[in-house]
């Protein structure tokens, strides 16, 4: 087993062990922190497919995170208020069932990714960054003006959504749900990176012309990657909204896009477990330094600066070396 695989396994075990220990010590707050790490890492795993594999610097992934969040908020708010979401062609009163909410979040964010990707991927470099950012901000301002679902104040959900066979109000059980989804996403991401599609996508990142000469269309490769990437981040959005039982336009803001990107960069762009390490460090810093100063992000900025300048392999690169990748 390579050093990176060992490190990855250790990280995953640590993420599992900390909440289990906290559960034994009756520390639900720690379990919630670990759940947050798992969910934010999931958002990063989505972005890592576009950024790490495809080289697509998207500053608009908060759009998918927010779409996932609002998918949960809309369905759950109608279910809790017993107000039909629509009555034609059949009566639908929303839902508080996680599988249905996830399916909606995935389909909605995949559709969003298809539209945003199809238009944004006609550009590259700084223009791609700006267009994805612009789409994200459009959705942000739309959410602010969407008074039916809380507008700028956001939307509170009184109870946590349900998962058949589990008590999701129990922090450890909700953590298990988030952890399970993260593991599935990591497995899928690893398979994708090793597949012919993943290799072709990686090749397209290096040279469009060379990829075209072997009969592959870089635009299509990138669009498919973007459409795969969006729903994973969207699913994270639905889980994040469920964790907080609250959804607001902040989930769609460019700050959120930046944070998701920070998870990926901190851990190591293209590293399979990069987003997990990045999200864990981010939450740890927020928790530890946030109590000392409200300007804790200055330290995060310094760390990020150090990573970008001196450790291109991210935090994973330091212990396992600069090779690796997804």
């Amino acid at each position: 087993m390579g050093r990176e695989r060992l490190f990855n396994a250790a990280m995953l075990l640590a993420l599992l062990a900390v909440p289990l220990l906290a559960w034994g010590l009756q520390e639900p707050f720690i379990i919630t922190l670990a759940t947050k790490v798992a969910i934010l890492a999931l958002a990063g795993v989505g972005l890592n497919i576009a950024l790490g594999l495809g080289g697509l610097v998207s500053l608009g992934h908060a759009a998918f995170f927010g779409i996932g969040g609002y998918a949960m908020g809309t369905l759950a708010s109608h279910a809790q208020n017993y107000e039909p979401l629509f009555s034609w062609p059949f009566l639908f009163e929303g839902s508080n069932q996680m599988p249905l909410i996830w399916l909606t979040a995935v389909l909605a964010s995949a559709s969003g990714a298809l539209v945003i990707g199809a238009l944004s991927l006609r550009t590259s470099g700084v223009y791609f960054i700006m267009i994805t950012l612009a789409f994200c901000q459009m959705l942000y301002y739309f959410a602010i003006s969407w008074s039916a679902y809380g507008g700028e104040d956001g939307l509170s959900i009184w109870v946590r959504n349900e998962m058949p066979g589990l008590n999701t109000l129990d922090p450890i059980q909700f953590f298990a749900v988030a952890f399970g989804v993260l593991c599935l996403a990591l497995w899928f991401s690893a398979r994708l990176a090793r597949s012919a599609f993943g290799l072709a996508l990686s090749a397209a990142r290096q040279s469009e012309e060379r990829v075209e000469t072997v009969g592959l269309a870089p635009f299509k490769l990138r669009l498919v990657a973007f459409v795969i990437s969006g729903p994973i981040t969207g699913l994270a959005g639905a889980l994040f909204a469920d964790l907080n039982r609250f959804v607001s336009p902040t989930m769609l803001s460019w700050h959120t896009s930046g944070e998701i990107m920070i998870f990926v960069i901190l851990g190591g762009v293209g590293r399979l477990y990069g987003p997990l390490v990045g999200a864990a460090v981010y939450i740890l810093l927020e928790h530890l330094l946030g109590g000392i100063s409200e300007y804790w992000q200055i330290f995060l900025g310094l760390l990020l600066l150090g990573m970008v300048l001196f450790a291109r392999g991210g935090l994973i690169g330091a212990p396992v070396g600069s090779g690796g990748g997804a």
Binding site: A200, S202, A203, R210, V211, L216
Partner: peptide, 21 residues
């Protein structure tokens, strides 16, 4: 192509798999 131009960071097998039809 002239100048070889393989996908440098990919392994031999990955280079071939990426192009396979």
């Amino acid at each position: 192509p002239e100048g070889r131009r393989c996908f440098a960071p990919l392994t031999v097998e990955e280079n071939l798999t990426a192009a396979a039809r």
